[in-house]
Design a protein around this nucleic acid. Structure first.
Lengths: 120, 120
DNA sequence: CGAGATCGATGACAACTGTCAACCATAGAT
DNA sequence: ATCTATGGTTGACAGTTGTCATCGATCTCG
């Protein structure tokens, strides 16, 4: 099942740390997102329904944990973009981003090191 | 304005070649997408309304051309993903994709060459 | 036991998306 | 002058998303 943008904000909180109570999730996301309690509750419910999150009963509340790993999510999103826009080829993606001119020297250095490592 | 997935299929046709009549667009996208005439017509209209496409009158029909460049679109999508999932850092993205193990030797070679070029 | 405080579930609603069909205007054909 | 084919505009409808408020069960404190 597909995870929406708003839902992914909740997932990020759970990937950072889990399990979490809904209260803890809210305290993490309500600030930056300016959401009310109700909004976050619904996002959590939808994620549970989508089986991206499990709810373990803990007394009267639930403890939520991700079922979908960040790794898998990120992999899917990245590969999807790559396939959709660059015919699955990595070099054109990197080229585009480097032309956007937002790469720091550090980015380039890291990338260089990484490519060395992959290449061998 | 945001371009949806279905709309981007129409945009791809126009980026490949433009201007095009709606008929030409349909012949390009109806096959792969299994869309009916009506569907494509609506997608085109919505793109015009969103100002992603212009319609120049040509007798009784229109000739459509992209207003949004593929370059800008791709840039936006790519940067968006990078910011959303990798905190704007390129190396982790490349790492993820390389771990997915779907990189060909050619990909790696291209990337290596590209990084050399950027680095200097 | 009764009054609040919690927490999840449910209902609501508008905007956007994917998908079509019906309608309408007009350029050509007869 | 009329008929028809063609292409654009509208209306429609279900599903998803973003956003909230209300309801109902339950736990806890006095």
């Amino acid at each position: 099942m597909k995870i929406s943008a708003a839902e992914s904000v909740v997932m990020e909180a759970l990937w950072r740390e889990s399990p979490l109570t809904s209260e803890a999730i809210m305290s993490q996301v309500c600030g930056p997102q300016d959401w009310t309690e109700g909004t976050v509750k619904v996002l959590i419910s939808r994620l549970v329904k989508k089986k991206a999150v499990t709810a373990k009963a803990d007394g009267r509340r639930y403890l939520y944990s991700p079922l979908l790993s960040r790794r898998d999510y990120v992999q899917g999103e990245s590969q999807g973009l790559l396939d959709r826009l660059f015919d699955g080829r990595l070099a054109p993606l990197v080229m585009h981003l480097s032309e956007g001119d937002k790469l720091s020297d550090q980015d380039i250095a890291e990338l260089k090191a990484l490519v060395e490592r992959i290449g061998k």
